[in-house]
Design a protein around this nucleic acid. Structure first.
Length: 929
RNA sequence: GGGCGCGUAGCUCAGCGGUAGAGCACUUCCUUGACAUGGAAGGGGUCACAGGUUCGAUCCCUGUCGCGCCCACCA
């Protein structure tokens, strides 16, 4: 049974993944070759855990392709290889999804209560949690599913608790009352990283604050007039002569009955606004610090919704901050206390999940004291224990790490790891692994009732432990000993701060070693116009749709369903219909993966162009059909034992194959997936298919070739194809496995899967074969060029004459005549006899050798004249450039001798070619008379 | 305000101190027994701009212009 005529990814991809998984090929223990006792290197990659309730997007698919490629490459190299999968509980994101579901049913989480709500989230996790795993299987990700982890499963939760207790005991976690980024919609604190500042249009209000002694007023400029009610000072610059005399006196705060002092502080910029700043220590980070320096009181005027509380005059109480602003402005205006209002662009802080304007708010939160952790983490990169690829990301890392502030890790949510702290009736804090442990550690009397802290930890806290918590830490497991530190982290630059830096800090802290040796930072996948893919832009591509294909109507429906802003639907529909009039065809996983690899250059943005995946789908088809040809040519015939004499073509392709494998190997080792895919593509298509397969036909389909020559060709065909399959397997696992199942046994490979075949490593550069092949190709290309440009039908065969052939040429001709006749489709090729007058011919040159295509009945004189003139012009140009170079005395004096020699050689070549072509041109012209 | 990056063929992108490359698109010819998801032959680029270093710059340096991202407490 032969391979099907056409490559159909669907049928082969669905088959192989379950088979691999069933046979346990993804598990490190299962890979150990029984016959090998050598100690194998460990190779481990941790999957950045996706949100458990999410779906994979193009970025995930891209990233997983790169990781799977590395994993498969190392597995084939014989390393003991672990790719650790898992998912993240994604605290805020997941809780919000479930809350929205409740809201749709007219309920809130408070209606359910904490326990019931958390059960509800677990239920949702169970329902939707399998999606990611299904998608990963479609992508061919060879993760060890037997070790699948979830950040909130028992083992990982134990690691969370353990680290919390240890850090607390060391004073590296503390509880403190200070300003945090408060999200008044989600009612939780956020870390600095979860706050995004965006430029927004606002106003700068210039307010008159009357001096307490009635002698006039100061003008303060503010973007947040509503915080006036919490002002506890006005500040000026200490060297500002305009206000020096007022420092130490007070102003009477409008709309209140309070007097607040005028203080001097260098924080104030004299040039900005009026040079006077209102100070609200409880609602602004800078003002807070200034307040600390000047011992100013803190007046908290907001409640958890950022509505005004009872600290403000009665008529303002309960007002939302924005309503309060309007009312305060109105009152100030009526009191003539507004000097002016300028339009002003300001950076507005918003929560990354809720998009609500974040309010600095005074609360009790848990913090990680970060400086002692950051120091060794910085040193780990400085010393090269961790290497970023590309290297320049270390700058970004340093930049952030050197300015890092304490990490607020508590969140006022219900979904997450609950803080392992208990409070006594007097408010004392008891931290422990559980309540019993907390009591024992702090000798809390049995009768004392303890209440557990309500907060949960930032999702990224558990993520930061991922490299070792997944391996069973705090137990000293075999996995920890074998696979920590892991080999490489493959991640996007968007989470260097959120995740990478924190893993480094915690890894060094708890494991006393870095969590990974290298960090490969890849770019972000954007659409073909460079736009970020997002639901609201309607430009999202689902990797599964590229694999399976999707018709236009389904694609449109998918893109416009569930939009947060339904009015965008019409535009999205229009652009989708324009971009994909035929929908998206099924390209298959291998083509998608190969496309990702080819796009994996060391840049920040990667534009995904559907045109490219089509090209690589075609590449799959090319490979498939090459395999058909090879198997059809080989099956049922003897391959010999490898002792048959190789033809020039056989030697040449083996030499080129070795070069390709070596290039791919180098590319994988240096994370140049683009170069690897390019080397594979070019060799397979342009050298193996375009040349070698055709050359092999000249042997296999010839009556005059010996059986030994045919065996050598068959051996080379199957050997080369089998090697291509192995080199290609890390990028295209499915098609290579499918073909290998047929080809491997013919090639004499043992083993039941390509997955664990050894990575091909071969020496075998054959310079002589490559030189001879270049000559042979030159002759063939010369003829083809004349054929192409003279519009001679491909089916038209003719005889070619060689003029000026030397001994070496005659020898090469003798060896390769059948190749040339076959590939140039000639009826014959022969050297001119001594004294033979050549007929009128079109001419091509191969070095000094003149290849003559007799014109009679084939070629029009005018066309040949035009063709020659074009060639001559081109050579004259090149010759001119080279001559200019060589006539420059400085060049000859200073350039390396080899370069000068090379240029001289080129002059010779050009001159000879030019002379030949010009003579030919004159001859042909004379002919046309 | 700091930091990082990009500007090469119509489009998406490699490359690199010494004759400008690929895929897609385009032109002409071809259904030859692996493949029309194919084959053969072609056209197309002052490598953003201006200086500098060099025998030689698309590549190194400086500046300009354009574009993008990240960080940051001018109210």
């Amino acid at each position: 049974m032969s391979l099907d005529k056409s490559y159909d990814p669907r049928s082969i991809e669905q088959h192989w993944y379950p088979e691999w998984e069933r046979r346990g090929y993804f598990n490190p223990a299962a890979q150990a070759p029984a016959e090998s006792n050598r100690k194998r290197d460990a190779y481990c990659i941790q999957l950045p855990p996706p949100n458990v309730t999410g779906t994979l997007h193009m970025g995930h698919a891209f990233q997983q392709t790169l990781m799977d490629t590395l994993i498969r490459y190392h597995r084939m190299r014989g390393d003991d290889t672990l790719w650790q999968p898992g998912t993240d509980h994604a605290g805020i994101a997941t809780q919000m999804v479930v809350e929205r579901q409740l809201n749709a049913a007219g309920k809130t989480r408070h209606d359910l209560g904490r326990d019931a709500f958390v059960s509800r989230v677990w239920q949702w996790k169970e329902e939707s949690g399998g999606t990611i795993a299904r998608q990963m299987r479609r992508l061919g990700a060879s993760v060890d599913w037997s070790r699948d982890r979830f950040t909130m499963d028992e083992g990982l939760s134990r690691a969370v608790t353990e680290t919390f207790v240890r850090l607390y005991d060391e004073g590296l976690i503390y509880r403190g009352k200070r300003l945090v980024n408060w999200d008044p919609v989600l009612h939780t604190a956020l870390s600095d990283l979860e706050v995004l500042s965006t430029e927004e249009q606002g106003s700068l209000w210039h307010l008159r604050y009357p001096l307490a002694d009635g002698s006039g007023h100061l003008v303060v400029a503010t973007t947040r007039p509503e915080t006036l009610l919490g002002d506890t000072a006005v500040a000026v610059h200490p060297e500002d002569e305009r206000y020096a005399h007022l420092v130490g006196s007070s102003i009477r705060l409008p709309l209140t009955d309070r007097e607040v002092p005028i203080v001097a502080d260098t924080y104030v910029e004299r040039e900005f606004g009026s040079g006077c700043v209102k100070i609200t220590p409880a609602h602004d980070f800078n003002d807070y610090e200034l307040g600390q320096r000047h011992n100013l009181p803190l007046i908290n005027i907001f409640d958890r919704n950022a509505a005004l509380n009872d600290e403000v005059p009665e008529r303002f109480r309960g007002l939302d901050r924005f309503d309060a602003r309007a009312k305060i402005i109105a009152e100030l205006a009526s009191l003539d206390l507004i000097e002016k209002i300028d339009a002003h662009t300001l950076m507005t802080p918003r929560g990354d999940r809720s998009n609500a304007v974040i309010e600095p708010w005074l609360t009790d939160q848990w913090y990680v004291r970060i400086a002692p952790l950051a120091k060794p983490a910085i040193e780990a990169v400085e010393s090269g224990k961790i290497r970023f690829v590309p290297e320049n990301w270390d700058r970004t890392y340093y930049e952030w790490m050197r300015n890092i502030k304490d990490w607020c890790i508590s969140r006022q949510l219900w979904w997450g790891h609950r803080v392992p702290a208990w409070y006594g009736p007097d408010g004392s804090i008891y931290v422990g692994r559980d309540e019993t442990d907390a009591r024992e550690r702090h000798q809390v009397p049995a009768g004392t009732i303890l209440v557990r802290d309500e907060d949960v930890l930032d999702t990224w806290y558990s993520s930061a432990l991922w490299p070792f918590s997944t391996m069973g830490w705090p137990d000293n497991t075999a996995e920890v000993r074998k696979f920590y530190p892991t080999s490489v982290l493959v991640t996007g630059f968007d989470i260097i701060f959120f995740w990478v830096a924190r893993m480094i800090m915690f890894g060094l802290k708890f494991m006393d070693d870095v969590p990974f040796r290298e960090v490969y930072v890849h770019g972000l996948i954007r659409d073909n116009e460079g736009q970020k893919m997002s639901k609201s832009k309607g430009n999202v591509l689902d990797p599964i749709d590229l694999i399976d294909g999707i018709d236009l109507e389904a694609l449109v429906t998918k893109r416009i369903t569930g939009l947060m802003q339904p009015h965008l639907a019409a535009g999205i529909e229009k652009s989708t219909r324009k971009q994909f009039p035929e929908g998206i065809s099924a390209y298959g996983t291998d083509a998608l993966r190969f496309t990702f690899a080819s796009l994996a250059t060391l840049s920040r943005d990667i534009r995904f162009d559907v045109g490219r995946i089509e090209g690589y789908r075609n590449f799959c088809n090319k490979l498939w059909n090459a395999a058909r040809y090879v198997t059809l040519s080989v099956e049922g015939h003897s391959l010999g034992d490898g002792s048959d004499d190789l033809s020039l073509a056989d030697r040449w392709i083996r030499s080129r194959l070795a070069a390709m494998v070596s290039a791919v190997d180098k590319a994988f080792s240096s994370y140049r997936f683009d170069l690897a895919s390019q080397a594979l593509y070019e060799f397979t298509w342009y050298e193996f298919c375009d040349w070698y397969l055709e050359l092999s036909k000249a042997v296999l389909q010839s009556d005059s070739a010996t059986e030994s020559q045919k065996r050598a060709a068959r051996h080379t065909l199957i050997h080369t194809l089998e090697t291509i399959l192995r080199a290609l397997h890390p990028l295209m696992p499915f098609i290579t496995e499918e073909i290998w199942q047929r080809v491997g046994p013919i090639a004499g490979c043992a083993g039941e899967t390509i997955m664990t075949q050894p990575w091909p490593m071969m020496a075998g550069m054959d310079a002589d074969a490559e030189a001879q092949m270049t000559w042979t190709q030159g002759v063939i290309l010369g003829v083809r060029q004349i054929r192409g440009e003279m519009d001679i039908a491909p089916s038209r065969r003719f005889e070619v004459l060689l003029e000026g052939a030397e001994t070496a040429d005659l020898a090469r001709l003798a060896t390769n005549r059948h190749f040339i006749e076959r590939l140039a489709n000639l009826s014959g090729i022969r050297p001119l006899a001594a004294g033979e007058i050549p007929p009128e011919s079109a001419i091509a040159l191969q070095g000094h050798l003149r290849i003559l295509v007799p014109m009679a009945g084939l070629i029009d004189v005018a066309a040949e004249v035009a063709r020659l003139e074009k060639r001559i012009a081109k050579i004259r140009q090149d010759l001119g450039k080279t001559e200019a170079k060589l006539s420059n005395a400085n060049f000859v004096a200073n350039a390396p001798a080899s370069v000068v020699e090379q240029e001289r050689g080129r002059i010779n070549d050009f001159t000879r070619e030019l002379t030949g072509l010009e003579a030919q041109l004159n001859k042909v012209k004379a002919l046309g008379g």
